[in-house]
Design a binder for these strands. Structure first.
Length: 230
DNA sequence: AGTGAAATACAGGAGAATCT
DNA sequence: AGATTCTCCTGTATTTCACT
C-alpha cells in the first residue's frame, strides 16, 4: 500500500492549481516541499510520480510530439477534469508550471490570478506571493500583437499603481523578451516601468534555459534599480 | 526489533535528433 | 540509411526511514 504524506497532498494540490507539469517541474516543487531551494533528483521525482499514480492521485502521459512526460492531478484527487494534452495552449501551461515550481523553491506561494473582472482586465498566468508581496507572473513563449500589449500593460499599470501588486515578471523566449520589453517602454509610464521585468528563460522549444538563480538575479537587479531611483 | 515503504544509486532501454 | 548521441524513462538491488 502506498503511503500518502502531507507533503504528497500539498504537491497534488499544487498540481491541481497549475493543471499540468513535466518531471523537471516536479523535481523543483518536491524540493520546495522539503524546504529546499534545490530540486530533487530526476529519479526521485519519477519514483514519486509512480507512487502517486499507484495511489490514484496523479496521472501521466508522454505525448510523442514533445520530450518529457506530462503529469497532472486526477479527477479523484482535485475534482477537476484531466487536461487535454493536445491543445495549443498545453506547452504554455507546462511552461507556467516550470516557472511556478521555481517560485515555490524560493519560498513563494503560488495561486491563479483572479478571473478578469471586466472586459479590459487581463488575467496573468499566476501570482507568486512571499512576505505579503504579490507578484504577477507571465510566461511568454510567443510574442503577442502590439495592440494587445497596449491593453495588457494599461491594465498592469493600474494594478501596479493601485492594487498592491509589487511587480510584474515575464519569463520569455528570446524573441518574446525583445517585444515584451520594447512594448513596455512604449506603453508603461516611467514611474511604473521599472516594476515590470522580463528575462529570457525559455528556448524556442519551450525548454527552460534560465539557471536556477535567474529569478533571484532579476530580483536583485530590480532592487538595485529601485535603490538608484530612491 | 521487525516490517514494509521510501530513498538512493547504478545500469540500461526506447525513441528522437543529429551527423556522416 | 546507418551510426551515434542525447534525453528521458525504467528495473532493480541496497540502504534508510517510520511505524507498530
Amino acid at each position: 500500500m502506498v503511503q500518502v504524506t502531507e507533503r504528497d497532498l500539498a504537491m497534488v494540490e499544487w498540481l491541481g492549481v497549475v493543471r499540468l507539469a513535466e518531471v523537471d517541474a516536479i523535481r523543483w516543487a518536491l524540493g520546495a516541499m522539503l524546504g529546499s531551494a534545490e530540486p530533487i533528483s530526476t529519479r526521485k521525482a519519477q519514483h514519486w510520480i509512480m507512487r502517486m499514480v499507484e495511489a490514484g492521485l496523479v496521472a501521466r502521459a508522454r505525448p510523442t510530439f514533445q520530450g518529457a512526460s506530462i503529469v497532472w492531478a486526477t479527477h479523484d484527487a482535485v475534482g477537476r477534469q484531466p487536461p487535454n494534452l493536445f491543445r495549443q495552449t498545453t506547452r504554455h501551461e507546462v511552461a507556467v508550471a516550470t516557472v511556478s515550481a521555481r517560485y515555490l523553491a524560493l519560498g513563494y506561494t503560488w495561486q491563479r490570478d483572479r478571473r478578469p473582472i471586466s472586459i479590459l482586465d487581463h488575467q496573468a498566468d499566476g501570482i507568486a506571493t512571499r512576505e505579503g508581496r504579490a507578484e504577477l507572473v507571465e510566461v511568454e513563449l510567443t510574442a503577442k500583437s502590439t495592440q494587445r500589449y497596449m491593453h495588457i500593460y494599461e491594465n498592469y499599470s493600474t494594478r501596479l499603481a493601485r492594487e498592491g501588486v509589487s511587480r510584474v515578471a515575464y519569463y520569455c523566449t528570446a524573441d518574446a523578451d525583445r517585444v515584451v520589453s520594447r512594448e513596455a517602454d512604449r506603453f508603461i509610464f516611467r514611474t511604473e516601468r521599472q516594476r515590470l521585468v522580463s528575462t529570457i528563460a525559455f528556448d524556442e522549444r519551450g525548454h527552460w534555459i534560465g539557471n536556477s538563480l535567474s529569478l533571484t538575479a532579476s530580483f536583485s537587479s530590480c532592487s538595485v534599480v529601485q535603490d538608484a531611483n530612491d
